[in-house]
Design a protein around this nucleic acid. Structure first.
Lengths: 256, 256
DNA sequence: TCTTGACCTTGCCCCTAGGGCAATGTCACA
DNA sequence: TGTGACATTGCCCTAGGGGCAAGGTCAAGA
């Protein structure tokens, strides 16, 4: 008769695996010889091969144990394991495809229309710094307000088709390098506030939903350059003057 | 900024998963706000997506952590993960194929030539009981003595092509149903011993390698019917009389 | 006969990638 | 001022074994 090692070697598993199957009740404990060694008959080989086949297919051991009952039940279970296996193969292939896109740098975190929009910005004259900032902004917006983000994005994308607004955005982009005392910043702030009021009245889209978004933008901008910080400060001052709804989030917590 | 829940939802994982990635050093711990909540910036989303992609591909988290160093190294690693993924897909498909064979009852534990040999036995007049016994015997032989088994099997298969020997085996098969006192058993034992000596001299193949195999056969036979037990006993007696090498394993331990 | 190396036994702790719970603190809304 | 959804840390649990310890056994060679 077979020792545990011979059984395990023949089927291609470790002795530990066989013992685990005994402990889990998958494989019946065989007789012991006079020194306490397990002694297996040939049917244990057949049974162990069956178990390994199912385990290799990813069936949990607990389910394999319950499986052996009736032949119809077993056939049904095998059917189900088969479709499950097909699904897993498909999922692996999908993963492989996405991994290759990742390696090629074509990974898209944002919806593809947003990625397309960002990809078009360099041609309009925006700096990489600005684009990176905007990209981060949209990631945050889509993560925090998935139901609003599309609307906000459509508005933003559409506003770039207006040459005047586009020039304001471009000017803001390039204000990054300006000295905080540059008088151009005052003029730019005035023009931005005027354009905003013309476009939205005193109630900008999204402002009724969550005050965190403007805060967020502000923080991102301010951290980046003194010129931007000054520009933001000017805009906020002008907005408040004309009663523009620019609530600061309570305690400023959301923007910390 | 994002809370852990927003980050997790956006990427499609649980908050626990994100915390685990922090604990394992995969994702840097972000700043905390005044109440101790984690606050994430947009780059955490990008990083988390990258980690999930690799994790989905089956890369262990410990390896993902070591991965980020140089771009060439990463490209090489991704290359390797890709081939690994291909191998896993192939292995799953093999498993699926074997599972279908299992479901169809076409599973082969033994080498295919042995299975073919067994499949041919019914046509020669052997009973299912004999074939099942022989199958078990070959499983044990291949498991215990993989290097000898092929030689022994070739000899056995070849001996069946001799009509006289084949008739002896058939007679032994059908002796299962005989009464232990049937005089035919004595005659059959004589003929088997004579044929064995004619074929092998007094040194049967495999006897010099391990005495367990004859013991094994004996035990299997004896457990099955009184007729067989008697036949075996007669054969052993005759063999010993003529000096045939039929060692019993020391203490009989291997056959327990 | 004694030693040596390869087996076997049980029991214990370890791993991965998280899940789930508890106890507690916070946030936002009504 | 509640209330439900969210956050925090810490702890134990899972599957499918791996690995080690401390001991018992077996076969072969000196």
């Amino acid at each position: 008769m077979l020792t545990i090692g011979q059984l395990a070697r023949y089927v291609g598993v470790s002795t530990k695996t066989v013992r685990v199957y005994h402990a889990k009740g998958l494989l019946p404990e065989p007789e012991r010889d006079s020194s306490g060694y397990r002694r297996y008959a040939a049917d244990a080989v057949v049974e162990l091969v069956r178990i390994r086949m199912l385990a290799d297919a990813g069936v949990p051991l607990a389910r394999i144990r319950e499986l052996g009952s009736t032949p119809e039940e077993l056939a049904l279970a095998v059917q189900q394991i088969d479709t499950d296996l097909t699904a897993r193969i498909k999922s692996l292939r999908d993963t492989q495809r996405r991994l290759r896109k990742l390696a090629a740098g074509e990974i898209s975190i944002l919806p593809s229309n947003v990625e397309d929009h960002l990809a078009g910005l360099p041609a309009l004259g925006f700096t990489d710094r600005w684009i990176a900032m905007e990209r981060d902004l949209w990631i945050i917006v889509y993560a925090t307000h998935p139901e609003l983000a599309d609307t906000l994005f459509q508005d933003q994308a559409q506003s770039l088709t207006d040459p005047e607004l586009r020039n304001l955005y471009l000017a803001a982009d390039h204000a990054h390098a300006l000295d905080p005392d540059d008088p151009f910043l005052v003029e730019l702030a005035d023009r931005i506030v005027a354009a905003s009021i013309q476009r939205y009245g005193t109630e900008p889209p999204g402002s009724d939903a969550d005050p965190a978004i403007p805060d967020l933008l502000q923080n991102t901008l301010n951290a980046s350059s003194p010129g931007w910080q000054r520009l933001d400060s000017l805009i906020r001052g002008r907005m408040a003057d004309v009663g523009f709804t620019l609530r600061t989030s309570p305690g400023g917590r959301r923007a910390e």
